[in-house]
Simulated assay, not measured.
Amino acid sequence: MTTSNAAGPDPAVLDELTRLRDSIDNIDAAVVHMLAERFKCTQQVGRLKAEHRLPPADPGREARQIARLRALAESAKLDPAFAEKFLTFIIAEVIRHHERIADDAANGTV
């Protein structure tokens, strides 16, 4: 199979590239929708925590989640360090939301 020539890339290669990129685009869309669902749940958690004056962060839960995600990543053949960085980023954003919700509740703006 030729990857390129003077006339340009092989049309079959371009078709395969397009097919793969379409799959990537679909997966990216699914990831965004799953993250949106996750954040809907974490917003509910934040409101519950604020209502009961619980701290925005839960380091024990966060550590368990990171360990769980690292194990899932390993079984999926994904770099566990990458998975941890990704979840750590998400957790930081969730905590920021929870802090804002708690501040709003304390100020009576909820």
Rank of each mutant, 00 (worst) to 15 (best):
A57T: 10
D103M: 09
G108Q: 02
P56N: 04
R96H: 08
R96L: 06
P59Q: 07
N26I: 07
P11L: 03
V45P: 03
R53K: 15
L35K: 07
M1P: 04
T88I: 03
I91M: 02
D28Q: 07
H97A: 09
T18S: 14
R100P: 00
F39K: 07
A105R: 08
D103P: 00
E99I: 10
G60M: 03
S23C: 05
A36W: 14
N5Y: 08
D58C: 15
H98F: 05
I24N: 06
I66T: 09
P55Y: 02
L14N: 08
G108M: 02
M34P: 00
I90D: 13
P56F: 04
L17V: 14
F82D: 02
H52Q: 11
N5E: 11
P9C: 03
L14S: 10
R38V: 05
K85T: 07
G46T: 04
K49D: 07
E51S: 13
E51I: 04
A12W: 01
A106E: 05
T3M: 12
V94Y: 02
T88M: 07
D25H: 12
N107Q: 15
A36I: 14
T3K: 08
P11W: 01
L69K: 04
C41M: 06
S4Y: 10
R21T: 12
A67H: 05
N5H: 11
G60H: 07
F86E: 08
L17Y: 10
V45H: 09
S23D: 12
T88W: 01
V31C: 01
A67C: 03
G8F: 01
P9H: 08
H33F: 10
R61G: 07
P59A: 06
D22Q: 13
A83P: 00
Q44V: 13
A63T: 11
E37N: 15
Q44C: 10
L78V: 15
A36P: 03
L35P: 00
T18L: 15
A81D: 11
E93C: 00
K49P: 05
D104C: 05
L14Q: 10
H97N: 14
H33L: 13
G108H: 02
K40H: 08
D25V: 13
P80Y: 01
L78T: 10
R19M: 11
E16R: 14
H33G: 10
A76W: 02
R64G: 06
L87Q: 09
D104I: 01
E74P: 03
K49M: 13
T18I: 13
A12T: 09
D79Q: 00
E99H: 08
R61N: 10
N26L: 12
Q43Y: 13
I95P: 02
